[in-house]
Design a protein around this nucleic acid. Sequence first.
DNA 1: GATGAATGAGTGTTCATTCAT
DNA 2: TATGAATGAACACTCATTCAT
Lengths: 200, 200, 200, 200
Amino acid sequence: MNETKKEILTASLELFSKKGYSAVSIRDICKIVQIKESSVYYHFKNKQAILEELLIQFEDIATGMMQQLEESLSKPVNPEKSNFYKGICDIFFEEYLMDDFCNKMMRLLLIEQFHNDEVRKLYDLWMFEKPLDFQSKVFSALADMGYIKDRDSGYLAMKYYSPIYCFAQRWLFSGTLTEECKEIFRVNAYQHIEKFFKEI
Amino acid sequence: MNETKKEILTASLELFSKKGYSAVSIRDICKIVQIKESSVYYHFKNKQAILEELLIQFEDIATGMMQQLEESLSKPVNPEKSNFYKGICDIFFEEYLMDDFCNKMMRLLLIEQFHNDEVRKLYDLWMFEKPLDFQSKVFSALADMGYIKDRDSGYLAMKYYSPIYCFAQRWLFSGTLTEECKEIFRVNAYQHIEKFFKEI
Amino acid sequence: MNETKKEILTASLELFSKKGYSAVSIRDICKIVQIKESSVYYHFKNKQAILEELLIQFEDIATGMMQQLEESLSKPVNPEKSNFYKGICDIFFEEYLMDDFCNKMMRLLLIEQFHNDEVRKLYDLWMFEKPLDFQSKVFSALADMGYIKDRDSGYLAMKYYSPIYCFAQRWLFSGTLTEECKEIFRVNAYQHIEKFFKEI
Amino acid sequence: MNETKKEILTASLELFSKKGYSAVSIRDICKIVQIKESSVYYHFKNKQAILEELLIQFEDIATGMMQQLEESLSKPVNPEKSNFYKGICDIFFEEYLMDDFCNKMMRLLLIEQFHNDEVRKLYDLWMFEKPLDFQSKVFSALADMGYIKDRDSGYLAMKYYSPIYCFAQRWLFSGTLTEECKEIFRVNAYQHIEKFFKEI
DNA sequence: GATGAATGAGTGTTCATTCAT
DNA sequence: TATGAATGAACACTCATTCAT
């Protein structure tokens, strides 16, 4: 992909994730990329097409992350309980929730879910459905391995994941994403995870 | 308050909560209220003022609800464990989370938190801080009354509240709010609450 | 109708009839009317709506003219042969073909018939079908009254009307419409009519 | 001439004759020719130059046709009355009015005569002046040969040609040019010619 | 011969807002 | 109280054209 096109995408995501799609003008994007407005239309059919390209990129990354998770679940490097879920957490946190691109995309999806039904479905899929599904499998696996007794893996997944989602909302998807915010999120989330796995 | 002014507020909230503040034009609002655009400016200084009035109304309601909760906590009608938290839940759910006005405001706050820092603070205050604080007190009270042993009321509040928040996000604050969505939310939330209070 | 709206219509017709609809910008129209571009949209939904209003006005006038013609055919003031058709000609020429508004509309229709199928039908209706139909009736009437022998009124109408149409094309619907052009047209057309009625 | 250049001209005429010069973009032309917009500028100085090349081609063809007509008038193959004018008609109709290239050019000239004074003159020259002049000569010749008595060859030419022009306008220069339209035109025109020569 | 990339000027349109009535 | 009329600023987008490769 062309360098300018990449820069347009980067600038667009930056702005979209802060103000929402419709509040960002082509002018705004061009100011960052340092090109003229008409040039955007050489690279993209229209403004909507920029958003769509971002959605596709996000889906690719999210799908890739999910595959990694599935793999690390089926072939755990270290099947000792705490190491087992720690490896998994790291992928999900570092390569997804807190990855700069993904994080911005999630904010964008969160805002745009109201205007755009396709986006709403994407948000639900990648913020609720997929993570909860996967987490259920993890708890089933842990139960099969005898590490936990509780077999209601669906509710367990919810109990495990919902605080993480809340922390993400509070610290990652709101306001300016600073390193400080990331740190607060990380501390809160890992504290929860530790307590959670101690209890079960 | 003048009848027309009320209608403007109602229509504005309806639209803002669906499309977000900036995607709604004065035209759109006037189409619903059946007045001319210039008439809006008799009732409000500008578009922003409509939003602000809505924020004030919401804060009033939310504050009132919180006061009710505090009261029902300090003078429990029926201090028997299950009745105790059921009364509290009902106020929070029916008069707040699922109340039509509040629900729309929450969607609005959710969308607008990115454009508007004041809104972001409001959202955090009324969706996280206040509910979690209050819930902490509830668990402290329950602990004081001997109903539960766990004294980490902060984490308990998080464990209790975060699934409710997630359910709200999935079913109340996304897409069109139908009676069906409300019902799914209610079922999920109450199931969680029941399980939760059984476990502690 | 509002004064400004009228001026917009007048200016639009003036320009449309010279350059064609799409070659005229809202800016061009506003330069003449001395208003800002955005003001146009108070009076008209969009550019297309200006054209449509002009089409309606033209149809009204053309329909009115046709009714006048029909009346003057059914109740001839002076049933003497030359006076009979002269009265009819005058209505058609002065109130239609050479009327400033109608003339400009015909140029406009002529140009726009290629972009716009509705316009093409209008042009055909009011430049060919209606005039030829009516002229047929005139010749039928003249035959009934015994003034002419030829009963092929359709072909007569064509022979009568087609030179007039050609003259109109050459002198009225092309280039700038000056009084000189009008005069050339008038001379040519009336010469033809005189010769024509002498021959039949 | 280069193959691509020819294709550009063909595509341009196709589009110009349907929508008018200014309503056709270089993009539109390139979509048909399957080249990039910048490539056009290798073959033509600018958009206007495409139009001008088409005008030159048309003038060449029209001039050639007129020469053929003049020749067939001075050396009639078969000086018998009906054969005499039939040969002439065929050249004018088949090689000019109904020839695909010429027909499209005439539509184009018809539309563009308003924007472009040079075009207006060309239209008048090749649709009125030249045909009427030549037809006058034909009638003079017929009168000299004793086939007709009427010596007002100018008016005869007008009476002969104007219905043909009208038929052309109705069936050839409006809407989509289908084989059906062509046929209607041909039938109407030849019917007129036959009647016309019977009458004189 | 052809094209990737860019651009200045322009297009129709929307919007929040103003102000006299 | 309400509105008719107007407007400046912005918006997404199109277009003919240029130029280095």
